[in-house]
Structure formats: C-alpha cells, structure tokens
Amino acid sequence: MKERPILFSDQRVRALLSGQQTQTRRIMKSQLMGPGQDNHEGCYGIDVINNHLQGNRVMGMENLSYHCPYGQPGDRLWVRETWRGPIIDANEVSDYERSPTRFKNPRYCQYRADTSHFVDRADQEDQSGWQAGIHMPRWASRIDLEIARIRVEKIQDISEDDVMAEGVQTDSHFLNNFFTMHNEPVSAKDAYRKQWALQYGGTSWEVNPWVWVIDFTRIDA
C-alpha cells in the first residue's frame, strides 16, 4: 500500500465530510492519442514527450489505469486542504516550546472548510494565517481515503449517478447552489459542468479532456 497527497477545495472537503462525495475526476496531464495516431491501429498511445513513459502502449483502457499517478486500488490518498496550525492555547505555550513535535497533529489545526460558507469571509473575525492546501504537510491532514477503483473516460461521459458520487445531488440540493455560486435551481449535471469550468477554466468542459476517475472510500480515524 502506498500513500499519496491529493488536493481538494473547501467545497469538496465539505462534500467529503458530509459523505456525499465518493468519487473524483482529475485531468490526465498527458492526453490519450486516438486509435491510429501512433501508427498502430487499435492501440492507445500515451504522449511520451509530456509524461516520459518511453512510448509505452496499452491495448485497452483497463490496462491504462495501471499508469494512474494517484495510485491503485488499495492505495491511500491523504487530503490536502486550506488550513492553519498548530493553534496553541495560552496554557499550553510552555509545553509547545518544550516539545513542538507533539502539537503536529490535526487536533491542533483549523480548516477553512469548517467555516460557514453562508458567511462572507470578509466579515469573519480572524482571517489571518490560512495556508494553501498545496503546502499542507502530512501531519496536518485529517482525511484519509482508500482507492477502490481507477478508470479513464472523457469528462462529458460522466453519468448522472457519477455526478451524484462527485458530491452533486438533485437540483434542489444545497450543494448545487454551493458549487455554482448562485441560488437558481439547476440539474445536477449542469451544476457539475459549471463547477468544473469554474475550477479548470471556461472552455475546459467543451474541450472534453480525458480524466482519471477515482472511486474511493473514506477511512474513519
């Protein structure tokens, strides 16, 4: 079993914590060439220049999943999110000064996803000290996931069931408004499409990239 970090936004962390999200899609850094583009009809070639796999060819999509950079079924992912810490109470400062390592624990951290998304962040009392999730060390991570399945597909091929597994529910579910940044009811798939474009850019849905599809289960602490 291997462990790897994976970055989630505040919205996605809330979906994880609520149990709504059991799947995530991540754009493949090197997009697949179509059949025949590698002079071998029926094979899927990987862009060697971009990912340095020395021209590895695979005979089907199920074989391609073995090259997923996020791991394989049974491997674990630890979630990176916006955070700050360690946060030390005044009565523990002396203990911290004697043994700071003991305080490198999620119990001494705060996570921005826990702040109410209904409150304007500018109105919150203390907004200092937040650190981007990309810089989160392993000790500060509070969410572990176990990979159940890896596959590959085009983003527009996402099914309605998979949209819900991504944390977007029916058109009346609060997560839809949450992902689309407005209050009008929308379909779950349309909400996901808008959230995808918000995260990856205005034309990211239309170009229909290949993505890694990762099914996972959350590991209870």
Rank of each mutant, 00 (worst) to 15 (best):
Q169G: 15
L17D: 11
D89P: 10
I49E: 13
G167P: 07
N39V: 08
P137M: 00
R80W: 05
D75C: 05
Q195A: 15
S128C: 07
T82Y: 03
E153V: 13
R142I: 02
I88L: 06
S172Y: 14
E184R: 02
I49S: 10
Q169E: 07
H135T: 03
Q199L: 14
V168K: 06
V207F: 04
Q21G: 07
V186F: 01
I49H: 10
D75H: 08
P209L: 00
I150V: 13
E97W: 09
G129L: 00
R218E: 11
H135C: 02
Q23V: 05
A90D: 15
G55V: 08
T82A: 04
L7C: 02
I219M: 07
Y96S: 06
C109F: 02
H117I: 09
D157A: 08
I155R: 01
S94E: 14
G19T: 00
D144H: 06
S172D: 15
L17V: 14
I46P: 13
T180G: 03
D162K: 03
A165N: 12
Q127C: 12
P106F: 01
V48K: 14
K189D: 03
N208Q: 04
W78K: 03
L175G: 09
D161M: 08
L53T: 13
D95V: 09
R12T: 15
A113L: 05
S94D: 15
Q110I: 02
R121S: 15
S187I: 01
N51V: 15
H135N: 06
R4C: 11
T24P: 11
V58K: 11
I150Q: 08
M61W: 03
N105K: 09
G202Y: 05
R193W: 04
S18W: 04
N50K: 13
L64A: 09
S172T: 15
W205F: 12
V163R: 09
M59V: 12
P69T: 01
I87L: 06
D157L: 07
S187D: 06
V93P: 13
W130F: 04
I46M: 11
K189E: 04
Y192M: 04
H182F: 12
D120E: 12
S65K: 03
N56R: 13
L77T: 08
P106T: 00
D161V: 10
K189W: 04
L77N: 10
I155S: 07
H173T: 01
E160Y: 07
R151P: 05
S99T: 14
Q11T: 05
Y66V: 14
D144W: 09
G60V: 07
P185G: 02
T24Q: 03
R218P: 13
T115C: 09
N177V: 01
V207N: 14
V79N: 02
R14A: 07
D123R: 06
D38H: 05
N91K: 12
W196K: 00
Y96F: 15
N39P: 05
R4I: 11
E92I: 08
T115W: 10
V152W: 05
N177A: 10
A122N: 15
G129D: 00
F216L: 02
E184F: 08
P185V: 00
S141Q: 00
I214Y: 05
G202S: 11
F8C: 01
G74S: 06
R138I: 01
K194V: 02
W210R: 01
R76P: 12
M136W: 13
N56H: 12
D95N: 06
I49A: 09
